[in-house]
Computed example of a mutant assay.
Amino acid sequence: YDMIGNVWEWTSDYWSVRHAEPAAKPCCIPSNPLNTNADASVDPTARVKVARRVLKGGSHLCAPNYCRRYRPAARHAQEIDTTTSHVGFRCVRRTP
Rank of each mutant, 00 (worst) to 15 (best):
D2I: 11
L55I: 12
A74Q: 07
C28Y: 04
P44D: 05
A73T: 15
C62I: 05
K56R: 15
T95R: 09
Q78C: 15
L55Y: 01
L55G: 08
N35A: 05
C28Q: 14
Y66I: 15
N37L: 01
G88N: 05
T84R: 12
V92C: 10
A46Y: 00
A63W: 06
G57H: 01
N37D: 15
S59L: 03
R93Y: 06
V17T: 15
A77C: 09
R93H: 10
R18C: 11
S16K: 08
R75E: 15
R71V: 04
C67Q: 09
Q78E: 14
S85E: 14
N37V: 02
A20Q: 13
A46H: 02
I4D: 15
E9Y: 02
T11E: 04
T82P: 06
A38E: 06
T11A: 03
C62D: 08
R90L: 01
R90E: 03
H60K: 11
K56F: 00
M3E: 15
R68A: 10
R75T: 14
I80Q: 06
C27F: 07
R47W: 05
Y1E: 13
N37H: 02
R75H: 04
A40T: 07
N65K: 05
P33Y: 00
T84M: 09
T95A: 11
T82G: 04
K25W: 04
T95Y: 10
I80L: 04
N32W: 02
P30F: 00
H86S: 11
V7Y: 01
T45I: 09
A38N: 03
F89R: 10
I80R: 00
P64L: 07
E9S: 07
R53V: 13
C62P: 03
V87G: 11
G57V: 03
S31N: 11
A46W: 02
H19E: 14
L61Q: 13
K25H: 11
R53M: 04
G58Q: 02
C67Y: 03
R68W: 00
T45N: 15
A77I: 02
H86C: 08
H19L: 06
R93L: 12
